[in-house]
Amino acid sequence: MPLFALICRDKPGALQIRQDNRADHLEFLKTGQIFIAGPLIEDGDMRGSLVVIEAEDLAAARTWAAGDPYAAAGLFESVQISEWKKVIG
């Protein structure tokens, strides 16, 4: 199954939205075929997310990403989803 990288950038000043929805987001991550996941850090604070998932295709990856509680809470300024290939590591 192909891998897809989701690069999600938080809206400026949205750290409280992230913190308020973090538990639901972490629970949601258990519903997917997660390869790796973690926050993007800027100036010591979480400012985005990098998630690599297994999905049948780009449409399935987009559908999964839309179900993230962070997305529903309006946390993200942008979400980029691209097919990704593991080469090293």
Rank of each mutant, 00 (worst) to 15 (best):
R47P: 05
K11V: 00
H25P: 01
I81C: 07
I36M: 15
P2S: 00
I53W: 06
G74D: 04
A5Q: 10
T31K: 00
P39M: 12
K85V: 15
I53K: 07
L58F: 04
R18D: 03
E77A: 11
R9S: 14
A55Q: 06
I34M: 11
D10N: 02
P69D: 08
L3E: 07
R47M: 08
E77V: 04
H25Y: 02
V51I: 15
R22M: 03
N21P: 09
I34W: 12
G48A: 06
Q80F: 13
A14S: 10
G32E: 13
E27S: 13
G67R: 03
Q33E: 11
E27M: 08
K86E: 15
I88P: 07
A60I: 01
L6P: 02
I81Y: 08
Q19T: 15
D20Y: 10
P12S: 02
F4G: 03
R47E: 08
M46K: 12
G38I: 03
A55T: 08
L29S: 00
V51C: 13
F4R: 03
E27A: 15
K30R: 04
D57A: 06
P39C: 10
L6A: 05
D43Y: 00
C8V: 09
D57P: 06
Q19V: 15
Q33A: 10
V79T: 12
L26Q: 02
W84I: 05
R18C: 03
T31N: 02
E42V: 11
G89R: 05
N21Q: 11
F28V: 00
I53N: 06
A14F: 00
A66H: 03
K11C: 03
E42R: 07
P12N: 01
L75T: 09
F4E: 09
A55Y: 08
A59G: 09
P12E: 03
L15M: 06
W64T: 05
A65H: 04
D68M: 01
V52P: 08
I88S: 13
L3R: 10
L58D: 07
R18N: 06
A23F: 06
I53M: 11
R47N: 10
I53V: 12
A73P: 04
R9A: 13
L26V: 02
Q19Y: 12
L58N: 08
W84F: 15
D45G: 02
A61H: 10
F28P: 01
A59S: 11
T63G: 14
I41F: 09
E56R: 06
M1R: 10
I88A: 14
D45K: 14
I7L: 15
I41H: 03
L15K: 08
G44K: 00
A71S: 14
G48K: 05
P12D: 05
D20G: 04
E56V: 07
L6N: 04
F4I: 02
A61L: 13
A5Y: 09
D45Q: 12
G44H: 03
F76E: 05
A65T: 04
H25M: 04
A66G: 09
A72W: 08
D20K: 12
Q80P: 09
L75M: 10
A14E: 04
K11G: 01
A73V: 05
A72N: 13
S49D: 13
G32V: 10
A65C: 12
Y70D: 04
K85C: 14
E83T: 10
V87K: 08
